[in-house]
Design a protein around this nucleic acid. Structure first.
Lengths: 139, 139
DNA sequence: CACCAAACGTTGACTCAGTCCAAACTAGCC
DNA sequence: GGCTAGTTTGGACTGAGTCAACGTTTGGTG
């Protein structure tokens, strides 16, 4: 389904459609929860060459425009994913760093209401579940 | 109240009581949500000298032993706080990075149940509310 | 088509948090 | 006093991410 194919998404956000950006979007979609480094590698495999700043700048731009989401768990470089807009969260393995998507148990917009917001206007609740994955528990 | 004064807490965890560790605990308590760097400064102000590795090693040890909690919001160095055990979360300002404590609206152990845990055994749910603080909204 | 400004992309140097390592020191214990 | 394990130190190092300056492409306009 091409209802929201990449090029259209970029244009909708006032961004030029470039080979790099398309490659970034494709790489993020193909490698969910990958680091900027790995995404850069994937783009380079496709395009031949892509500089480090281009990878970071491009990802930052896509994050700002809401096409990509950045997750930064403790003790790990930032990771990226293309599932945006729905309200899912992540489990992270304390041992190996593996990350998986999870829906939240508490309805559609869980935890979005803080009990005391200290005058903040909150636009996102980020939930990370920490634990051990099956493989790491086995060892 | 000295029901849980620092030296006793350290000994309970099988840790030697050293001037550095006491200073770390005091610094974390006195500067909630401070970075390792600021905590190091506070300790140095108290002790005269304390090396960078000592600050990091000490903090890591205290985190492992459950005396201090580490929070690592995206695009920010790790922060530390001494409120552990209770189930509170944090609001972070996207603009200035300010961080405040909040209780969660959804009962005592909110969101600790993921809808599908992918075989993970979860021991902690970390919730970050992102938004803009009053000061940054004013500008 | 020719020109121009704005947007893109590149290289290379740089910053900054955090870690590693080997050596020196200290405290408790025989 | 001498042992031994735990602590602390300085300094070098790593790795993620950013900056700045310079060249290149793109699309709009006359």
């Amino acid at each position: 389904m091409a209802t929201h194919e990449p090029a259209a998404l970029l244009r909708e956000r006032g961004l030029r459609v470039t080979a790099q950006r398309l490659a970034l979007l494709r790489a993020v979609a193909a490698h969910p929860h990958a680091t900027a480094d790995r995404i850069g590698d994937a783009c380079r495999a496709e395009l031949g060459t892509m500089s480090k700043p281009s990878v970071y700048d491009g990802l930052t731009l896509l994050v700002e425009r809401g096409l990509v989401r950045r997750i930064q768990p403790a003790r790990s470089p930032a990771r990226y994913e293309s599932r945006v807009g729905d309200n899912h969260h992540h489990v992270v393995c304390r041992s190996c760093g593996r990350m998986e998507d999870v829906g939240c148990a508490v309805g559609a917009r869980p935890c979005l209401e803080a009990s005391d917001d200290h005058g903040f206007v909150i636009d996102e609740a980020e939930v990370l579940y920490w634990g051990l994955c099956r493989d790491c528990r086995a060892t």
